[in-house]
Structures are given as C-alpha cells and as structure tokens.
Design a protein around this nucleic acid. Structure first.
Lengths: 192, 192, 192, 192
DNA sequence: AATGAATGAGATTTCATTCAT
DNA sequence: CATGAATGAAATCTCATTCAT
C-alpha cells in the first residue's frame, strides 16, 4: 500500500528534521499529505507507526545478515560481507540514524515497554544469526574458541562504533570503505 | 540539597520500574514524597530533571576517565583500568541502564534537540579523554599507529557490548570480571 | 464561523454574570457547549478570546464613527449623530459594559502589555476620527477654535459620563434619549 | 506601619513597570525587600494589597473633595479648586495611572465582585460630594437647573478626559495648568 | 477510502498561602 | 516579628483518537 509507505517516509523526514521527540499526528499527516484520520486507516495508533518504521529497519537487518550467511564462502569472508552490507545499510539511512541513534533496541525507549520487548527480541535474533557465522568461523579455526554470541555482539558493537563516528561527523568517507579495516580490527585487535 | 537528590533518585527508581517514557510529574512527586510544586522549586522543568540525571552519569564518567588517566602506569595499563572502572560504574547502575541503554548520547532522544546537543558534546569529551590514553599507548608502541579517537570509540563500543550482554541477561557475572578479557580482545582481536 | 461566535457570546454571558476576572477555559467551554479543546481550535489562547471580544467592540465603534462622518450634514449635526449612535451601541451592550466598564482601553488591563497596546491604539484611532468632525465644526465656526483632538476626547468623555450613570443605575431611561442633552452640554456647558 | 507602606509602594513600582496583570506575591516581596510570608503579616491576601492600594487613592480623593468643599468661597470657585486639586492628585501619580487607568471603579475589574462593589460605592461617594458643590452652584444660579449628580459626573468625566490625554502623551504640560480651561469648558461648552 | 472538526483526558506548570523555625 | 521552603489546588493547553460526512 503506497499510502502506508508515504506515511512512514513522512515520519522519517520529520525525524531527520527534528528528532523523534514530540512528533504529533498532525505533523505526520501534514508531511504525508493525508488527512489526520487517514493515519488511523493504516495504523492502529501513532506508536504503531514508529513500530512499523523500526520494524522496517529490522527487516532490512534480517535480510542483510541472511544474505551474508547464505553465501558460499569461508566464515571469515561471510563476516566481512556482513560488515560491508551492514555499513551500506547504515550509510543509506545515515540521516535518520543521526537523530535516532544506531541501536534500534534503545531507540525503542520512546515506546511502551511491551512493544519494546518485541522489537528488542527481534534485534537479538539478528545478532544470533551473526553468532552462527562466528560459530562457523570458530569451527574453521579462523576465530579462537569463544562464546559465539559474545563474538557477535562485539562485532556488531565495533560496527556501531564506526557508524557512530560517521554520524557524529568525525568521519565523512562512506561507511563501507571501512569494512576491511573493521574486519581486521575485529580479528587482530589494535595491538601491534 | 537533599531534596534535589531525592527527586533524582525517585526518577531513577521509576526508570528502573517502567522505563523513561511516559514518566509524569505526578509520578515523580509521589515517588519522591514531595508535592508536585516542589519539583519546580528545584528544577526548571520536568525535562530539566532528566537532564540533571543524565549529567550526573556523565559526571561520573568524567571522573572515572580522569582517574584512569591520572594514574602513574603504562598507557595499556591505564586502558585496562579505565575498562575496569567503567564496568564498575555500569555494574553499579545496571538496573537503570537496563531500561535506559548504555549510550547516554542517544538516551537524550527523549529531550529537546538543544539540550541534547549539549549532553552529546559532554559525552564526546569523555571519549576524547580516552583517546588521549590511546594516543599515549601508540607512542609507547603497545598500540599500532591509528587515529586515537578511532581507537577510543572502538574501545568504548566493546565495553558497551559487554554491558549490553549483562543488561540483557546473556551474562550474569559482575561486569568487571570481564575487564581482562575485554582488554585482550581490544588488543588482539578475536582471531587466533 | 458559527462556533467562533458561540464562544465569544459565551464569554459575554459570563462577563455579564460575574465580571471579566477569573474566567476559566473550562467555564467558557461549558457555557459555549463545546469541548475545552475546541476553544483552541478557534483561538490561539484564552487571552486571544478576550482580544477578539474587545476587537469586535472596537470594530463596532469604528463603523459607527464612520457612519456619522460619512453623512452629508453640518459638522455639529454629525457630532449629534455620533453621540446618538454611540449611545445606542452602549445601550445595546449595556449589561456587558456594566461589568466591563466603558473605556475599552483600560479594560485591557487584564491583557498582557503588548496586546494591550495594539488595542489602545485602535481605540485612539476612533477618537481621531471624531476629532476630524470636530475640526470640521471648528471650520464651520460652530465650535470655537481649539485643538480638535481635545474637543473629541472631551466629547467622548461626556458620553461616557452618561453611559456610566446608566450603567450604575442612576438613570434607567434608554441612553440615546439623552443625545440632545449631551450635545447641548458639550456645546454650551452647564452654566446659564 | 512602615512595612505596610513599603509593600504598597513596591506594588506601585511594579504596576508602573509592567501593569497590574500577573503580579505575583513573589514579585511583590522581592520588590519590597521582605520575605513572602511577611506580606501575609500585613495583608490578608494578595488581593487585599491591591484593595489597600486603591483605597489609598480613594482616600486621597475624599480628602481632596472635602478640602474643596470646606473652603469659604462661591460654589463655582470651589468647583475650580476641586478641578485643580484633582488634577494635582493625578499628576502626582501619573505613572501609576498610566498603566492603571483613571477610573478606579473599573480598575477593580481585577478584583472579585464583592470587594469591587465596596470600592465602587466609595468612589460614588466622592462624586456625591462633588454633586453637593454643584447643587450649591445651582442655588447660586451660576449653574443652570439640572440634576446635581449629573453635573458632578460630567465634571469628573471632563477632568478624566484631560488626565487621559496627559497619560497617553497627547499632552505633556502639567495637568493642573489646564484647570482654568476645564472649568470654562464645563461652564460654557465648546460652542462659540 | 478519505476527511478534518470535535473531543476530553491528561500533562505541565504556576502561585497564593501556610507554618515550622 | 520575620522567614522562605513546601504545598497542592487549579489553570492552561496539547494532542491522540474518533466519527459523521
């Protein structure tokens, strides 16, 4: 449904412009060029709009990790690709994440506790998928023995570190150009 | 002023109980056992209460990085200590961060854009302080040549990774018991 | 817009009943039989409602002085007619003015200083229009040489004197029956 | 009691500065350099302060009309003196009346209806006193036969007309310099 | 399906007044 | 007498949601 997308896009634009706080139904309707009542034809509530927006991002995340997992390659190569895909995803939405923050789990602070939990869990699922690649890498002996989930969380955090630098303007080069460096950092650390 | 602390503490308790969203002035007053009007005797607005709360955390962060910096030791040792202090800080407030998230910058999503900027900047200052230790480590040749800020952001992200695991219940051991592991991870990565 | 008028009328009724002080938004909404929120659909603020009410009166005043000015007659005749029209205006709204007072400028004491200034100025414009008729009367030699504005202010004050008497119950006859007397008083004073 | 006067004076200063609307107890206490609680040692309520302020003015008015009445002179002479005294009174307090308006009766719009009535009545008493002089003037045949109260109200209105011009800056000469003109206007009107 | 006027619960904030010190 | 921290009732205004058209 095109209208639904219009509305979500309108919210994104508003978020880019003024952050997520204090967005009103009026504002969304105006930006989406629909009547206020129309919002409620496509969404149960205003909160529901935010949830859909976040779920869209989560879906993209799921797709991207599946893509990396599904490839026929060494686990380390898969990790490298995941990094690249993830960075591309963030780069594409950099303006939104600039006001939203990178950690979809925490973003949901603006939501009620119940809804939030559901989003958080979905978010963990993605990390769990990453952990499976890590587990494979351990099996392949390219990564040392460790709790795979731990390895996944650390990897995602390092990626977020670079997204954060990009977002806050420490870095202006496109994010995915850092993919190789991130993988190396992850594998070998900062020591010499 | 004791009342001021009471109020901040009341807010923390409420955050632990139900997250930061939808906290009302009534609720804070009730929890702090003061009249609603009293809130406005000590704070300019409800938002101001949140800001003070976050600033308290930032202040703790500043202190802790200064402490690590100020020690007479090798830079790598200082980094290790910073990790330890930071983990202790998060451990102490683990319940609050459970609903608040670790990244104080983004938490401020609930605030107006202006105030938020100020908090974010203060947050960066802390990372900048960490970057100075990293720079020292580079000079001491224990860390390879790299942008020190980059090294600092990555370190902080890895710490957050562990805090996140603790918060979400993947891990139940006290956070600072991971300090050594984190330093090792940071220095040598996950590879074998 | 009918609702807007309803609201203004509701305020008038309340003013008649209990004066202008301490009128609440709740009260207006109840009297106008609309929801409280509806007030803010038609007016920016509660103060804005009062301003509109006063502006309505000012508009009536403007119309009435224009009417007198525009007539084809000797200036003194025009002054007589202005007196008559003005008295009719006050008579029509006598209940409201009973609690509001006659001097719209001062009524605005209940408003913020900025808005008040604008209303005052508009009020002066009306007197300025009267002064033009006085100037014409001076030219026609029916009024002796004097500052026309002075003549206008005095005339308006005398009119207010009679409105005041009517309002306070010294006088119960309809105001406009005094028109001739007022003109005579204005022209010839109280001496013999 | 000196404190009481301090407080009243503080209110006057505030009125001069920002009008009568929105004056808070805090503000009065600050301006009077006493604690907020002290206000309630000398006045029953905030409203009571305003009432005292207005009553002070009324008292001055009473005194001044008594003075004029009590003089040994022709009634017309007494009226002239009343005009002069009244103008001096307004001149002395011109800054306050600039924001308060001249008609003490209406000023009390900011007060509750009961208190207001009492002030209004006291205000009428003054006019009644003037009317006695007018009555005398009628007896002395210097004023034509008329309802003395009517004559008094008209006189007072004309005085107010000049005060108004002074207040609004049409006139900058001291008010009492107009006394003669006003008497003449009152006695002989504006006609030639 | 779409609209947008109307709603009213509920949130924030103010401020006159009290009272323990 | 004097203070000023604390109170809490009450006021303004917002905004998600509904529903008749």
């Amino acid at each position: 449904m095109a209208k639904k997308k219009n509305i979500i896009d309108a919210v994104k634009k508003i978020i880019v412009r003024k952050g997520i706080r204090g967005i009103t139904a009026d504002e969304i309707a105006r930006e989406a060029k629909v009547a206020k009542g129309t919002l409620y034809l496509y969404f149960k509530s205003k909160e529901d709009i935010f949830i859909c927006l976040l779920e869209d991002f989560l879906r993209e995340g799921e797709v991207l990790v599946e893509k990396a997992s599904g490839e026929r390659a060494a686990a380390v190569k898969k990790l490298g690709n995941f990094i690249k895909y993830d960075l591309k995803f963030y780069e594409k939405n950099v303006k939104v994440f600039k006001t939203l923050g990178t950690d979809l789990g925490w973003v949901s602070n603006v939501l009620g506790t119940e809804k939030r939990k559901r989003l958080m869990e979905r978010h963990f699922e993605i990390i769990k998928s990453v952990s499976k690649i890590v587990a494979a890498a351990i099996k392949e002996k390219s990564v040392r023995k460790m709790e795979p989930m731990e390895g996944a969380v650390v990897l995602v955090s390092i990626i977020h570190a670079y997204v954060g630098m990009r977002i806050h303007g420490f870095e202006n080069t496109p994010l995915h150009s850092h993919a190789g460096k991130i993988l190396k950092l992850y594998m070998a650390g900062v020591g010499r």
